[in-house]
């Protein structure tokens, strides 16, 4: 059986959905952060699979964008984890339900 671009896109869509589910439904902040990483990776896979369908230098564009995505993911993880540490000191919890002070 031959692997077409549609197969890669299907895998990317499934991984993106799982990451979105982790962000929306899990209440542990770390799992939510991991869901964000999962979504970023799914988009990278989609980029690379689309890059495969183009010819010449156009195919390089789709392979350069994931490099920037990875760098931005590093910055995001850095700031996100620092924020989790900062809030954890005040609330003593990583449950996102504990961070509802704007609701009160």
């Amino acid at each position: 059986m031959v692997i077409d671009p549609i197969h890669y896109q299907g895998v990317a869509a499934i991984l993106f959905a799982i990451g979105l589910a982790a962000v929306l439904s899990r209440r542990n902040l770390f799992v939510a952060l991991m869901g964000i990483e999962l979504m970023l990776n799914a988009v990278n896979l989609s980029f690379l699979a689309f890059a495969r369908m183009h010819v010449g230098t156009a195919s390089l564009t789709g392979q350069i964008v994931p490099l920037f995505t990875i760098a931005i993911a590093a910055a995001e993880a850095c700031v996100g984890l620092a924020m989790v540490i900062c809030i954890f000191r005040q609330r003593d919890s990583v449950d996102s339900d504990a961070y509802a002070s704007m609701k009160e």
């Binding site: 549609i6 495969r52 369908m53 230098t57 195919s59």
Partner: peptide
């Protein structure tokens, strides 16, 4: 994606290796 015809069938061969 399933409705997009361009995604079915093998990709064109001209893509540059990354």
């Amino acid at each position: 994606l399933a409705g997009a015809n361009a995604l079915h069938g093998p990709a064109q061969g001209g893509a540059l290796e990354g």
